[in-house]
Amino acid sequence: MSTDYQQAREALGGRLRELRLSAPGGPLTGTQLAVQFGWNKSKVSRLENGRQTPTPNDLHCWAAATGQAEAYDELLARLRGFESHIRSWRRQLASGHKAVQDAHLTAHTDASLFRGWESSMIFGILQTPDYARSIFTRYAELQRSPRDTEEAVRSRMRRQEALYDSTKRFHLILWEAALHALVCPPATLAAQLDRLAGTIGLDTVELGIIPLSASLKIPPSTAFWLYDDRQVIVENWHAELWIDDTASVETYLRTWRTLRESAVYGADAHNVINRARRSITGSR
């Protein structure tokens, strides 16, 4: 968890403690507050010490219990402030994957230059419906989130309309390992690779692939997207990080450029895709 994020969470916890101790009817103990809402008594301590992120409902309860309902808007603004940078999957996927896809659709609408790096699966914007369906199903199982697979697939397919927008450019780099990852049935992966090969001729897409045999200056690691070189979206197992401070964006841009030095393009990229395609056919 980032230091800035943790500091913001601790600051919010300090404000909660301040409200508890300054209640108009007299200071409340943590136990008294917990009993009112049927919380585990340790929850109050975790919230006040920045060891747990409150929900909006937690904040509403807290403001009401301390007799300071007017503080709710302030508390919610603080929460939204740091959550806008670290968006946990637990919260984002509370109603399924479609909402997350719609958020990315909005981000795509507002940007014109995209740089992406992916090491483990095909970029969402290049996925076939069947491949996307497999990905959403696997992640719903992992995150134990509601199944809205078909709605999420439709939203992801709408994002792909941007590939045919002449005002946008996509500079994408894949590690070859992503072409072999059987996160879906072999036939689905084969069709996905055919689709991937077809994107190489698009004038809006520059697709590079880093062969497994390539010499690397840095290890291939976490996937990320750069939007107009001003914002980065990074995916981890627990959350998405939406980063917009200049120093961090510059770090990811340098990372992308360093990875690009090992990528192949055009006919050479086709050859890597065809090699992966043949390996699927031979494995059946």
Rank of each mutant, 00 (worst) to 15 (best):
D4F: 14
Q6R: 09
Q7L: 14
A8D: 14
R15Y: 08
G30M: 04
N40K: 14
S45V: 01
N49E: 06
N49M: 05
P54G: 12
C61V: 02
A69E: 14
E70R: 14
A71G: 00
A71S: 14
A71N: 01
L76W: 11
L79G: 07
R80Y: 00
F82D: 00
I86L: 04
W89Q: 00
R90K: 12
R91P: 03
Q92H: 03
A94K: 02
H97R: 00
V100P: 04
T109L: 05
A111I: 00
S112K: 05
F114P: 05
G116E: 06
S119D: 06
S119Y: 13
S120P: 09
T128H: 13
Y139G: 10
L142Q: 11
E151Y: 10
V153E: 01
R154D: 05
M157C: 01
M157D: 02
E161M: 04
L163I: 02
S166N: 06
R169N: 02
H171Q: 12
L174Y: 07
H180V: 01
P185K: 05
A187Y: 07
T188Q: 10
A191P: 10
L196G: 02
G201I: 10
L202I: 01
D203N: 13
E206L: 15
G208K: 05
L212G: 15
P219K: 13
P220S: 15
W225L: 07
D229E: 14
H238D: 13
L241Q: 11
V249T: 06
W256P: 06
L259Y: 15
R260P: 11
S262N: 04
A269L: 05
A276Q: 03
